[in-house]
Amino acid sequence: MRPNIWVYCCISLALAGCLSDNYTIKKRQYASQGRLVYQKQCVNCHQDDGNGYARLYPPLHHALQSKPLDLVCLILEGRRGSVVIDGESYTLPMPAFGHLKDDELAKLLTYLYNTWGQEGPLVGVDEVEKQTRACRSK
């Protein structure tokens, strides 16, 4: 007896639902662990709301317009020289966070891209690992 096409559809939908649930759960888990990384490494300058402080420490919204992996090298290597955001020039150097591990970076990026009203992607450790290697081989 041939199974009904509707049975296949139901099974596929259920599987897709499970996968999607796992993705969402993992993303939330990463974001909440990434918040701890943010609180420890970033919040002193960029503040709880990501808006920076005075004309000393820049807001993050500009950086978050890039793709998550584009920020890996910046975080690992820091930055010297000024950056202009919304017409304001910020001149203080950003320190290098080369001590962060790939999983901490992945969680931090997931947090950054899923906070302050954004609904961004889950940033995986494997993709961060590739990017980290690329940054370090430059």
């Binding site: 002193n44 300058c45 402080y53 005075a54 000393l56 203080l92 320190p95």
Partner: peptide, 16 residues
């Protein structure tokens, strides 16, 4: 110190 990446930014904020 100006380039302090650790406690100075939060100290400056509190002193402000």
């Amino acid at each position: 110190f100006v380039s302090c990446p650790t406690i100075c930014p939060v100290m400056t904020k509190h002193l402000k």
